[in-house]
Design a protein around this nucleic acid. Sequence first.
DNA 1: TGATTAATTATTGTTAACAATATTCGAGCT
DNA 2: AGCTCGAATATTGTTAACAATAATTAATCA
Lengths: 239, 239
Amino acid sequence: MSAQSDSNAETTPSEDEVLRRIEQAVLDHRLAPGTKLKEVQLANLFGVKRGLIRKVLTRLAHSSLVQQTPNRGATVASPSVKEGQDLFATRRVIESAVLETLIARVEEKDLEHLADMLKREQQAYLGDEPAQALALSVDFHRELARMAGNSVLETYLNDIIRRTPLVILAHLGDDADNRCRNHEHEVIVDAISRRDVKTAVEVMNQHLLQIESKIRHKPEKQNQGLAALLRPEANPDLT
Amino acid sequence: MSAQSDSNAETTPSEDEVLRRIEQAVLDHRLAPGTKLKEVQLANLFGVKRGLIRKVLTRLAHSSLVQQTPNRGATVASPSVKEGQDLFATRRVIESAVLETLIARVEEKDLEHLADMLKREQQAYLGDEPAQALALSVDFHRELARMAGNSVLETYLNDIIRRTPLVILAHLGDDADNRCRNHEHEVIVDAISRRDVKTAVEVMNQHLLQIESKIRHKPEKQNQGLAALLRPEANPDLT
DNA sequence: TGATTAATTATTGTTAACAATATTCGAGCT
DNA sequence: AGCTCGAATATTGTTAACAATAATTAATCA
């Protein structure tokens, strides 16, 4: 009955590994908001010591994916509608600033890189690989921030991006279409290549508002026990 | 020789207390950038267990005030000039967004509250209480964010404000005039009361650029041992 | 039954001892 | 001296046992 019983070795996962797996489980909403995350249970599940779980939970709490209450442990966070709105409002601010910064310094090879990303993203859509398409679509936003070259802006945007799926899921029963419209990304890149800040920002804000519009009512949908953590992830790559 | 030898009780400080005192020491640059922060030494200094110090250092690392390297401990952070510039650029973005948000929803009692804050700030300046004036001047910015009502923006601004003094100190040998010009705060409040976003943002950006202009060269100024932590703080309030 | 409280169990929080890793110091050498 | 290597020391990292707290159950009474 131990967690150690697979065909191949199955080395004990690192702290980052555990973090990633719990985070992914939350974002795939295999763990619903409000689910209690008990330390010993998680430790057994992953075959690691409780101390490590403890550190991971603290880190997750810091990125607002879990909520920690003194002496009462951790639960998957249930962001309020207000928090979701604040998050999106801030995202518009940050992404606008990213575009403005980027356009002021963008070079030819950056544009080529963006074009390349767009192409791969589109291929994933057309090739009917939604998981891959979603990942690439998120990467697009991250990449803009990276290219803009402001590390603080980049950190904040990454924080927001990390929190976004939970905010959407928490107010949407199911994960209806979290991904971006590829077309809008194209229009944004076009505006960037023309150094047209105004259009780029406008389209980006439209784009984000369109995503935000999915946040509506409350869920009251509860957990299903956290053995779901052991289920293979969306794309079961055990590389 | 123990740390427990004062006249009155001197209860063992809480985690937050220790955090606050180390942070304050960094910001008062009683601990210079680069200073090694050894766990046992700190634990003895504060009369707490090493585990608590460990948690505190991790928290400080998260707000970029200390740098942690695996197996090699923690040092007071030495932010680069680039990081300082990114921080200020982001701050302009955030504060502008705060003003825009705030002006869209500001009410009469908010304006009264701001007027009141301005008055107290001015009194501190005139009364020749620079420490108090600085604190109030920082509070002004925090308060604008709080009143704007976007918790994400508020969190980010607080993060930036927390990091700002170190960035300035690290590139300025000494802490020359970190505080804001009270006059500019007045102009900003005036613009807010007229719902004049454009002016408010312009003045704020000028205001921030003026502070940023103080960042210049590198320091290479090293620590003096961390017993400085035990020195009473700027304002020795032992309430 | 339903409410209240005590006893039991489960869970989180802390710590002291140990392990692993880095740093320092010095001997021996060229 | 300056260098290399290895032992000794110092420092950080982990863990198992314990303590403190919360949640659950059982017992009692109205």
